[in-house]
Amino acid sequence: MHDFLAHTLHGEPPAITQARLPALHWQWIDEGILEITPEQPATMALVISAGIHGNETAPVEILNRLITPLLQGDKPVLPRVLVILGNPAALRSNQRYTRIDVNRLFGGRWQQYDDCAEARRAWRLEQAIEHFYHSGCCDEVRWHLDLHTAIRGSYHPRFGVLPYSARPWPADFLQWLGAAGLEALVWHNAPGGTFTHFSCEHFAASSCTLELGKAQPFGSNDLSQFAAAEQALSALLYGEALPAVAQQPRHYQVAQQITRQGAQFQLHIDADTLNFARFSQGALLAEEGERRYVVQHAEEFVLFPNPNVAAGQRAGLMLVETPPRSETQ
């Protein structure tokens, strides 16, 4: 198997589902799930996922371009790697999701929904990542990088969202995120149903959702815009040089979440508002019945505003900028 993406989009397993090459062994675990194991002992267990949202195709193309040399035996691999294309059905149809947003279903939240393909997919991905991490050595470093692109434009086109964690973040992990070209890092202040929160909470992985640009369909991506992220991933996978940090990312903390509860919800943020747009204290952001969301700090910055989410889901985040963190574990 030389083209993981093509086989996944085709919807059938490859004729050969595993192979041992001079430097590594690979195994097709399930649709869109591939495990790559080096012949030499590894000190890191690395999960790289993309395509959790089916209309975010550039990270999928980059990930496929990175693992193809491994499957062809042209490159060595340093860590144990689990490669995941999150929602193959949505990728085939160029839709964000077919029924339910998979990235709201992790941590067992899929059990709250009627049986459907995406609830089953979240459950399957939970199983895959649990087996992968538990099959390694107890002292392995665990990272999970979930690659995305955003629906709307942004004042910071490339940024990372880190899940809530009571543990300090490893300095080398934060350094890697800067080397990957991220211009901003956002820290959550509460648990959530994302894939990265699941891996962080349940397996103590250093996890980050990487938003690497604007969502485009297959064939419309300018992959040169993702050069820093691709080079940083190459450094992890092949042991190549890590790119220099062009600029230190700005740091933000989630201050409040805007949640849609039902049909009366109104979001007072224009549809063309960019991520990280600034709002002043007292500005009305959204309302639903007697519930009003207003800017509580001197200034807050909006992230992921979307009035069309399902009831009970996040319709936006408001952030405050914080001094840069320097953490170690």
Rank of each mutant, 00 (worst) to 15 (best):
A180Y: 02
Q248T: 13
Q72A: 15
L5D: 10
A205R: 01
G108V: 05
D172R: 13
M1T: 13
T43V: 09
V60S: 03
E31I: 11
L210E: 05
S220K: 14
A128E: 11
Y238P: 04
Y155V: 06
P13Q: 05
E299K: 09
T68I: 00
R314E: 03
Q266C: 13
T194M: 04
P13K: 02
A255D: 02
V141M: 12
G289Q: 07
Y97W: 12
R325P: 03
I36E: 08
F195Y: 15
Y155R: 14
T57K: 03
I258K: 01
N189Y: 00
H148C: 02
Y238A: 06
P191T: 03
M44N: 06
V309R: 06
S224L: 12
A128W: 00
P13F: 05
R291K: 14
I62F: 07
Y113Q: 11
G219V: 07
Q281V: 09
Q216N: 10
Y293T: 13
V47F: 09
A227W: 05
G181D: 10
L236K: 03
T273A: 10
R104C: 03
L185M: 12
G108K: 00
A15E: 11
A119T: 14
W123F: 12
A315Q: 05
A58V: 08
G181P: 06
N221E: 07
L174A: 14
I151R: 14
G178L: 02
Y238E: 12
R260M: 07
E35K: 11
Q248L: 13
A150G: 06
R124K: 15
R96T: 09
L242Y: 04
R104E: 04
L91N: 03
P305C: 03
T68C: 08
N221A: 12
V320R: 15
V309G: 06
W110H: 15
I29E: 07
Q248S: 15
S49R: 12
V83G: 03
P305W: 02
R325Q: 12
E118I: 01
V83A: 04
A227R: 14
L85F: 15
F106G: 01
A205P: 04
A235S: 15
T149N: 07
T273Y: 09
A89P: 00
L91S: 06
S224T: 14
L212Q: 09
R250H: 11
K75N: 07
V81F: 04
P249H: 05
Y164H: 15
